[in-house]
């Protein structure tokens, strides 16, 4: 069975179509749906095997990146969303979608009825929006279903495009919990795989964290855009013969898991 993927669209969402394409190439059946329609009950999360929150500037990011979208999620789909996550179905938040998941308290993971925000994505150290290609290393011990089967020598390459992507934890307790549970599913590294400095860590994220999962591993949020590297010719050094490092692998793993979990 091909998993149905609900791609949630808020006013200002702009990478929904390429996310849909990535899901399709990975074997899913994507459908882009406005968040209001889910709130209104036209569509039910339960009818989908995977949920994807794509990148963009929801509500203009006018009150902080992803902030108003996180409220829309909590107020409008709170129960549905909690049930979806609790059922172990895969949820992926990319860039603005990640920001919304974090601000809604769904990452790094809080299963209570009223999740508390423990981590944030704040302004890049450069204070600027930056668009550049980065290299990501999957954490092999992470519970994340989207990186399942990936080894840490398989580096993923894809662009970032954000102004507020710096991960900051509330305190050491949160930091320690993320470490203990191996929640940093993806980290920025230098192109050769060594530890990242700017610009390879483009925003100053602590621990070079690029993507976070929850302890159950079925929710992944990441700032980079794996949906923008799903075929070789999108690579910036395609003309130099460089191949590989497709972001598509994350979608393939997620869709595979969704198919199995369904």
């Amino acid at each position: 069975m091909q998993p149905r993927v609900l791609i949630l669209h808020a006013p200002g969402t702009n990478r929904d179509r390429e996310a849909a394409l990535a899901c399709q190439l990975a074997g899913g059946v994507p459908e882009i749906v406005a968040v209001d329609r889910v709130v209104a009950g036209d569509r039910k999360l339960a009818d989908y095997q995977m949920l994807l929150l794509p990148g963009g500037f929801s509500f203009g990011d006018d009150l902080g990146a992803g902030k108003l979208w996180s409220i829309a999620l909590r107020d409008g789909l709170g129960d549905q969303l909690q049930a979806f996550v609790a059922a172990g179905r895969p949820v992926m938040g990319i860039c603005n979608g990640f920001q919304a998941l974090v601000k809604a308290g769904l990452l790094p993971g809080d299963t209570s009825a009223d999740p508390v925000q423990r981590v944030t994505l704040t302004r890049n150290d450069s204070a600027r929006f930056e668009c550049r290609w980065v290299t990501l290393r999957p954490e092999p011990d992470s519970p994340c279903v989207f990186t399942r089967g990936l080894t840490d020598d398989l580096l993923i390459q894809c662009p970032v495009a954000h102004g507020e992507g710096k991960i900051a934890a509330r305190d050491d307790t949160v930091r320690d919990a993320m470490g203990t549970h191996r929640l940093a599913a993806l980290r920025y590294v230098s192109p050769d795989g060594s530890a990242a400095t700017y610009p390879f860590n483009p925003n100053g994220s602590e621990g070079d964290i690029a993507g976070l999962t929850n302890p159950a591993g079925n929710v992944l949020g990441l700032m980079p855009h794996p949906e923008d590297h799903i075929v070789a010719r999108q690579h910036p050094r395609f003309h130099r013969g460089e191949r590989g490092g497709l972001g598509l692998v994350l979608f393939e793993a997620g869709i595979k898991y969704a198919a199995e979990a369904a």
Partner: peptide
């Protein structure tokens, strides 16, 4: 140029900056 999103819509095949170090 890095302040401009030149990747959105996933179709930028020849990018504004190219080469070994982009």
């Amino acid at each position: 140029v890095r302040g401009y999103d030149h990747e959105v819509q996933a179709g930028t095949i020849v990018k504004p900056f190219v080469g070994v170090k982009n």
